[in-house]
Amino acid sequence: MADSPPGITAAPHEDNLRYFDVTIAGPGQSPYEGGIFKLELFLPEEYPMNPPKVRFLTKIYHPNIDKLGRICLDILKDKWSPALQIRTVLLSIQALLGAPNPDDPLANDVAQAWKEDEKAAIAEARQWTLKWAQ
């Protein structure tokens, strides 16, 4: 994308212009800070009436992202609007990294850990960032 927001890149595959390699930098003041996370994004046939499909390829410890990298984010599901841009979607995902929501979990074990001992969960998330997102 020509006008990618800071900390975000998106490049289409040469053989499939609807399929993007994405990177998102972990936001400051979060356990993902210093990490570069790889994602993939696909614009399905029904886009923009239906949302893009996005998932993390880098392992990440986050209550709203599951083991396969699937993301629980309302604008990727029922709150999608054709007016939203890819850029907005990626910014929202970056914001989700800065504001985990263990009350609307996708990864139940992570959400549980987050609620029981937030400090320990944040430390774990930081460890994963150091291990996988460099």
């Binding site: 499939n16 609807r18 993939e40 696909f42 399905p44 499909k53």
Partner: peptide, 15 residues
């Protein structure tokens, strides 16, 4: 016609 990539195709199949 949009060509769905392997990973999103397999995620659909998984679901």
């Amino acid at each position: 016609m949009a060509k769905i990539p392997r990973s999103f195709r397999l995620l659909e199949e998984l679901e």
